[in-house]
Write a protein that binds this DNA or RNA. Structure first.
Lengths: 136, 136
DNA sequence: CAGGATCCGGAGCGATACTG
DNA sequence: CAGTATCGCTCCGGATCCTG
């Protein structure tokens, strides 16, 4: 991205009715930041896992196959920052911390869950597509 | 991930009715691969852009604010490989190549678009959540 | 059990230059 | 216009150790 290139995709792009129409395509839009947080490699899976209800740290680590403690912790912080989940420290010993979706988190995670369901139901199509593409 | 840790999250996890129930949480599941391809930083935005109809390379580059040519090209190949979009080279001069969603791509992209709409409509909530989190 | 701190290799990614 | 090739750097992310 050269500095002299005029960027006109920041504010109102396709619909210029409002003064500042939020636009995921725009780099500086708040929705884009939220979108990138949600579509993170691990964050999305964490959100989906929480659709079934609150989870503890260890539960999530076991549920999301392959995630390291570091990345799980990092993902949870990111999602908490975006207001998609809440962290509840019971302050007991041994420690117990629960992660649960906020109302907005429920809305978002539900859609991710639905998306994942579509993918799970069409696994054969993906296998075929990959084989086709790799074959030639 | 230690090697001796028994991983039992590969196949049937929460529902063990079928022989091999696809599971996004499982590392080796085809749906997980598709999910990671879809939720890539740029791939998701490309898919959303294509909901409005076929686009040329340059159009996409201008539409998806901040993407480099390299990453756009790479993202398009990945999505084509997953069978979510088709590439049509008209073979003319100057060259013209169109990218369009497959039926499966329409299904997936539509859901991403809906998700993005939610985020765009709740931008203020994210701003507030971030301010709250950063403040303390 | 919940996670912070640190090290470090490799993947991700942008910038630039070049081709048909 | 539609890409590919190459360089170089950032930072993702896993492994490991440590604490309350």
């Amino acid at each position: 991205m050269t500095a002299d290139a005029p960027i006109t995709n920041v504010g109102a792009d396709d619909r210029l009715d409002g003064p500042f129409e939020p636009n995921v395509f725009a780099r500086d839009c708040g929705s884009r930041a939220a979108f990138e947080a949600i579509t993170g490699r691990w964050t999305s899976l964490v959100l989906i896992a929480l659709v079934e209800g609150p989870h503890r740290f260890g539960e999530l680590r076991r549920r999301v196959d392959g995630v390291s403690e570091k990345m799980l912790s990092q993902s949870l912080h990111a999602l908490e920052r975006e207001g998609l989940l809440t962290r509840t420290d019971h302050g007991t010993l041994p420690p117990r911390v629960d992660y649960a979706l906020t109302p907005l988190g429920v809305e978002v995670a539900g859609r991710l869950r639905a998306l994942a369901d579509v993918l799970q139901d069409t696994v054969p199509l993906f296998e075929a597509a990959r084989a086709e593409y790799d074959g030639q």
